[in-house]
Amino acid sequence: MMEIPRGTLQEQTFYEQVGGEQTFRRLAHRFYEGVAEDPLLRPMYPEEDLGPAEERLALFLMQYWGGPRTYSENRGHPRLRMRHAPFTVDRAAHDAWLQHMRDAVDELGLEPGLERQLWNYLTYAAATMINTAD
């Protein structure tokens, strides 16, 4: 059996493979640039400044993919469905969210296998947030 040297790709987390904190911050920033201009999604964010929501998304994704646990240290368990329950998330909101996320993911320029892994998770997560029938 061949020994895998420390620090090789097989040993890295997804977080490390895609570029760490900077990549997830870029993703969240680009996503919220789209949300800021979206007439369907923007009203779901009561804060005048989308910065806090952008920070929460970046921290959540970093933690989910193997980075620092800052999100849970600051906010506790993610409880995504519970946190989104006060908002009407129908198919139209789902589609708008995914469109802005697609734009953000595309701008990262990730290696195709990593991009597919990220996108598969995001499409799954978006589908689980739907809480209102059309």
Rank of each mutant, 00 (worst) to 15 (best):
M82N: 10
N74D: 05
R81K: 15
H77T: 11
Y71E: 06
E54M: 03
R83P: 02
Q63V: 01
L57S: 02
G34A: 00
A133Q: 05
P5A: 14
L80H: 09
M44A: 03
R79S: 14
Y121R: 12
H94F: 07
Q99R: 15
Q17E: 04
R30L: 02
V105W: 10
T123E: 14
T13H: 11
P5F: 14
P68C: 09
Y121H: 15
E21S: 10
W119G: 00
R75T: 03
G34K: 01
Q10A: 15
P43H: 05
N74Q: 15
S72K: 12
E37D: 07
T88F: 11
Y15H: 15
D90C: 13
Y32N: 00
P78Q: 06
M62I: 03
A93M: 12
A53F: 00
V105D: 06
R69N: 13
E16M: 11
D49Y: 01
R81E: 08
R69H: 08
Q117I: 10
R25T: 06
V89S: 05
M62W: 01
G76L: 14
L40K: 02
D95T: 11
H94I: 00
Y64G: 09
A58I: 01
T128S: 13
A92I: 07
R42Q: 06
R69T: 05
L27W: 03
G76H: 08
W97Q: 10
L114R: 15
V89K: 09
A125K: 08
N120S: 14
A126T: 02
P46G: 02
M44Y: 04
Y121G: 05
L41D: 00
Y32R: 05
P5Y: 13
T132N: 07
T70M: 10
E11G: 15
F87E: 10
F60T: 01
G7D: 10
R30E: 01
R42G: 02
R75Q: 08
L122W: 02
E48F: 00
A93P: 01
G19F: 12
Y64H: 07
E54R: 09
E54P: 00
M82R: 15
L108K: 14
V105S: 05
G76K: 12
Q117G: 09
E3V: 07
P46E: 07
Y32G: 01
Q10Y: 12
P5S: 14
M82L: 11
E111C: 06
F14E: 10
M129H: 05
A126Y: 04
P39S: 09
A92E: 15
R116I: 06
T13S: 15
E16V: 08
H77Q: 14
E33C: 01
R42T: 04
D49Q: 03
P5W: 09
